[in-house]
């Protein structure tokens, strides 16, 4: 049961990156599951025989979201988000997928009270020994995060360009 729980967490976290048009297709979900299981095998091998990859802030290459995580976490910040926050860590980066359509009430009201949950996540990333944290905010929640984005420089964040999937 514990192993099944781990797989569920991994699959649910990774499924947050499924494109909407594929979420309802049985065949796509099967290939998604196979993909994750196969890649997790590679990830486990890498953990047994670790290869050091240089960290770079300039590109996505070293910390792609598409690489499976080494650790998966369900984070719960009930004062700020109603839903569980799905997270994963690779070697350097703590990936946090904020619940869609469910941002904190403070965010929704546009009150600059984003610091608390951000600080909590930064502290957690630090505790986990991560160099950086990537926060994935649903585009359909853009209105809710506009205040947050306006203050980005002030809070020391930067926007990461989307991956060139065609490339």
């Amino acid at each position: 049961n514990l192993v099944q729980l781990y797989w569920d967490i991994i699959l649910l976290t990774e499924s947050k990156f499924l494109l909407p048009q594929y979420r309802q297709q049985q065949q796509s979900l099967k290939s998604f599951q196979k993909y994750v299981v196969d890649k997790m095998g590679v990830t486990l091998n890498r953990m047994v025989k670790p290869v050091k990859v240089p960290y770079s802030r300039t590109g996505n290459l070293n910390t792609p979201w598409r690489q499976l995580g080494i650790k998966y976490l369900m984070v719960y910040l009930p004062l700020h988000f109603k839903d569980v926050i799905w997270c994963k860590c690779d070697q350097f980066c703590f990936h946090v997928i904020l619940p869609q359509n469910n941002a904190s009430s403070a965010l929704r009201r546009g009150i600059s009270n984003d610091k608390e949950w951000l600080l909590s996540l930064l502290e957690l990333g630090d505790k986990l020994g991560m160099q950086s944290i990537r926060i994935y905010i649903g585009r359909d929640d853009f209105n809710g995060v506009s205040t947050f984005l306006r203050n980005l420089n002030w809070i020391g964040g930067r926007l990461v360009p989307n991956e060139n999937r065609a490339g």
């Binding site: 990156f17 594929y22 994935y136 995060v145 020391g156 964040g157």
Partner: peptide, 16 residues
């Protein structure tokens, strides 16, 4: 692989 995408998200990065 092509059924995954980060188009759904705005991605912000912070140093810990």
């Amino acid at each position: 692989d092509l059924i995954f995408g980060d188009e759904n998200y705005i991605i912000l990065e912070f140093e810990c």
